[in-house]
Write a protein that binds this DNA or RNA. Structure first.
Length: 156
DNA sequence: GCCAACGTTGGC
DNA sequence: GCCAACGTTGGC
């Protein structure tokens, strides 16, 4: 078992927020329809990896808490359900194209670390979510960066 | 609600 | 395999 990795995963709180994850305890992360994001989940995520839970399209956008991967990637059934919003005819039970992981709730930050706060931190310049027009919904994060954000979230 | 950027699709 | 059109993302 290699060392755990660190990630940032985006969700619009109107569809699924950190409070929803707290209530549910854990959730299957379905609906990812971007190949790069899928590849991260399928090829690199392992049980125990830690995730910055990011609220996008929110007021304010920012990191709301922490989750942990509790089950590795498996085929995403929402891709072969024609009634599902994320339905993709390319995917089938026989040949699944899309995958999801299972996340469990770890922590809701006492302080939501907003996008401007992330931007203002001199040591977080390399954080991918700060790059302009970075839309990837699953992003790798350096351990050092993860720990800085974690600390910021626990302040006040 | 706007809009810039980017990924995907599909005609050729 | 090019590239224009289209849809989506996500900050503002």
């Amino acid at each position: 078992m290699s060392a755990i990795r660190y990630w940032l995963m985006k969700s619009e709180p109107e569809s699924y927020s950190i409070d929803d994850l707290k209530r549910d305890g854990k959730t299957y992360w379905d609906g990812v329809r971007n190949y790069q994001a899928r590849n991260f989940m399928r090829d690199q995520m392992q049980v125990g990896d830690r995730v910055l839970f990011y609220h996008s399209n929110a007021e304010p956008p920012g990191v709301a808490g922490i989750a942990e991967v509790c089950k590795k990637a498996s085929p995403d059934p929402s891709a072969w359900d024609p009634k599902d919003h994320h339905y993709d005819p390319k995917s089938s039970r026989e040949n699944p194209v899309w995958v999801g992981v299972e996340l469990k709730f770890v922590e809701k930050f006492s302080h939501l670390v907003s996008l401007p706060e992330l931007r203002d931190h001199p040591k977080l310049r390399a954080l991918l979510v700060l790059k302009p027009f970075q839309r990837l919904s699953v992003q790798p994060v350096d351990k050092a960066h993860f720990e800085i954000v974690e600390k910021m979230g626990r302040e006040t």
